[in-house]
Design a protein around this nucleic acid. Structure first.
Lengths: 169, 169
DNA sequence: CTCAAATAGTTTGACTCCCGACTAATTCGC
DNA sequence: GCGAATTAGTCGGGAGTCAAACTATTTGAG
């Protein structure tokens, strides 16, 4: 009530209110698990950003890539390869078929299954994404360092094999 | 298929390989990006499996840990620390409050904000999860290899810093 | 041959996450 | 003081995931 401009001016010289307060991460800040998560996340987002025009997540690219490399594979095999539930794949493939990139055809020998193949349009889309993916991977390689790459991959594979005992299926 | 002509005993465990078909991963199989993703994923699932009784994902643990280490921090600060949107935090905190682990109190000096603190029950839950987290991290360390740990972390940090688009902060 | 179990894929429901719009409280300009 | 801009947190909608239930087909025991 008695506040006058003089008092307000007194408040002005404080630039600190916006400080986000630095957080003490303690033990958590030194864990591999947290950093693995953060690294994966930024890599994922960087890919999505790079391939933005093409409506593509890394998994979407992987689907196109794997169908291209393994024409005629079934949805179940594909799902196992990307470690996703088959029910997660259904809408993705629906969409890719609708876009004219992929064709689903009943397998002669087992008419419960579909075989997947890329159309020419799908191959073109894949090739375009491939360019982004290569550039993305090159940037990661640069950050990893050429000398460390092989060992870094080795370690990741050990983690995948060592922890992923029975996680899927 | 070891289908022994058993009687009506339905207990016929079939953890058989069920090898799906050899997929050609080609270029994709040699990328850091894919392996980073898979490693993070198995690590995440391994944690969840280990801490199963306690209804806990790694993020849930991180939330409890960070509130414990920084009592009185606000939701916004916490969200920034775990790199999640504040709106992602709301239901998690709702749940933790409902469980009696966390209390939200309006901050005196700025009544838009909440301060977060752990209740004794929350501290107990956190301590229990901490045991799982330590065991989890120890297992990862074992897979990484003692000699490689520092460099491995260093590389992950370079990826985080190099690809993270500074979208927050 | 017949019928029950297994398998490929889809659908549905629950859960988690994000983004953008919204509400409430604060701050600042006047 | 009174409103505009700002900030903390919530709400609603959309995307992605899995598990379980479901349909259609294949396999196999008798």
């Amino acid at each position: 009530m008695a506040r006058r401009s003089a008092e307000k001016l007194k408040i002005v010289p404080q630039p600190e209110p916006a400080l986000p307060r630095d957080i003490d991460f303690g033990w958590l800040g030194g864990t591999v698990g947290l950093h693995l998560r953060l690294a994966q996340e930024v890599a994922f987002q960087a890919f999505a950003r790079r391939a933005d025009g093409a409506d593509a997540s890394p998994w979407r690219f992987a689907v196109l890539f794997l169908i291209d490399a393994n024409p005629g594979l079934t949805q179940g095999d594909l799902a196992a390869a990307i470690r996703r539930n088959t029910s997660s794949l259904t809408p993705v493939l629906d969409d890719l078929c609708r876009s004219g990139y992929v064709v689903r055809e009943r397998l002669e020998s087992d008419r419960r299954a579909y075989t997947l193949t890329l159309t020419p349009a799908g191959q073109a889309a894949m090739a375009e994404l491939m360019a982004s993916a290569v550039a993305h991977e090159r940037e990661i390689d640069r950050l990893v360092g050429r000398a460390n790459r092989a060992e870094f991959m080795q370690i990741l594979k050990r983690i995948i094999g060592g922890l992923g005992k029975d996680d899927h299926r």
